[in-house]
Structure formats: structure tokens, C-alpha cells
């Protein structure tokens, strides 16, 4: 199993719980806005601490309340692609791409800088500052940055939601290529039924 997730967390007065197992390829976490989909990604990334439960990816436990396991975010090997890109504004595109790559252990780097630039078509953007980028460009840089950090799996939080139709198609193709050519397990959050049906091999409904 790529993802084994059984967690719950209390956010204010609400309790958000998720339980699913997912195979390789893209698994969609599908549900209306406010269902707690992002909270689930945050728990898997280690940015939020579940009250209880267990999270494992490819058989490696990232969090296990019963066993006292709670890996730090930087030790989880996760590539988190955020809805709002979160590119570092004080670095160039190249600086953003290399940020995680520099920090990754040499044997964790499974793709190199030139490959990512080629794969995502970033050659013309390397010197640019993030604020100069269009939404589609920024999202490609964010994906490249995650891949270069030596990620063993990707978490994608509505990566298409702030893009226009043409950019959506562009990023959707990129995600399909990551699925097919790089064979990286992806957990994909969305509230768009068509998007999910096109990309995902498996759908987890949250309500």
C-alpha cells in the first residue's frame, strides 16, 4: 500500500477523521470545501499533529500514536504542492528549485536539476523572481521544487484551483506525466469531480 492513513484531529469544535488505504498512482481525496481535506494532508506532511492514529507511506510509519512515532516534517520525504504555491519570494526560481535539493541526502536525490528543468519546461524562468510568474508557471516551479527535494511521495492540495482553463490543462498534463513516467505515489486533494475522474485511479470521499 502506498498510503495507509487512519487519523483524527480536533480543529476548534470540529473533529476531522480520515481512514483509507491507497495503492500506487494518484489517489484523490475528494469532498466539499471545509471537509478537512487539507488538514489530512497537513497531518501526513507533519505540519499538524493528529490526536490519534497512524500514518504510513510505502510501509514506512511517519506517525503512530500507539508506538510513539512522530517524524519531523523534514524527515518525512514528502513533496507538498500547496494550493497557494508558497514559493520563497526572496529567492529566484532556481533558488527555490535548489532549496530542497541542497538539503536532501545525496542518496535521496532521485532526479537532478537539469532533468526537472527539462521535464517541467522551466529553462526560461530560472532567473525570474516568483512574483513575476503566472499561476501556471508558479505551480510548475512548486512541483519541481518538491520533486528535487528527494520526495518519495507527493501531496497536492487543489493544485489547479487558482488557474485558468488553459493553465489547468497544462498542469494536469504535468501531473499525468509524473504519475506515468516518475511512478510517484500522489495524494491529490480536489473538490472538482471531473478533475478527479480524469487523474485518479482511486477516490477517497470525505464529508
Amino acid at each position: 500500500m502506498s498510503f495507509e492513513v487512519d487519523v483524527s484531529i480536533t480543529r476548534g469544535s470540529r473533529r476531522i477523521a480520515a481512514r483509507f488505504e491507497a495503492g500506487p498512482g494518484i489517489t484523490a481525496l475528494f469532498g466539499r470545501s471545509g471537509a478537512g481535506k487539507t488538514s489530512v494532508l497537513d497531518m501526513i506532511a507533519g505540519l499538524a499533529r493528529p490526536d490519534e492514529g497512524r500514518i504510513a507511506v510505502d510501509g514506512r510509519a511517519l506517525f503512530d500514536a500507539a508506538a510513539g512515532i512522530d517524524l519531523r516534517p523534514e524527515a518525512r520525504g514528502c513533496g507538498y504542492v500547496f494550493q497557494d504555491y508558497r514559493l520563497f519570494p526572496h529567492m529566484s526560481v532556481e533558488g527555490n528549485l535548489r532549496y530542497g535539493w541542497r538539503l536532501a541526502a545525496p542518496d535521496a536525490r532521485w532526479i537532478d536539476f537539469e532533468q526537472v528543468v527539462e521535464f517541467l519546461g522551466l529553462a526560461g524562468l530560472l532567473a525570474a523572481r516568483p512574483r513575476r510568474l503566472s499561476g501556471g508557471e508558479a505551480q510548475r516551479v512548486a512541483i519541481g521544487r518538491a520533486l528535487l527535494s528527494g520526495a518519495r511521495f507527493l501531496l497536492m492540495d487543489e493544485p489547479l484551483s487558482s488557474l485558468d482553463a488553459a493553465r489547468r490543462e497544462e498542469i494536469m498534463r504535468v501531473i499525468e506525466r509524473i504519475r506515468d513516467e516518475l511512478a510517484l505515489p500522489i495524494l491529490y486533494v480536489s473538490h472538482d469531480r471531473r478533475e478527479v475522474e480524469r487523474l485518479a485511479g482511486q477516490i477517497v470521499e470525505m464529508d
Binding site: R76, Y80, G100
Partner: peptide
């Protein structure tokens, strides 16, 4: 949120 992103990238 930028700090959180940096954590997930290994910092």
C-alpha cells in the same frame, strides 16, 4: 506558511 513549506522540503 512559507516556513511550513520549507520544513516539508527538508529544512
Amino acid at each position: 506558511r512559507l516556513e511550513a513549506a520549507a520544513r516539508t522540503l527538508g529544512a
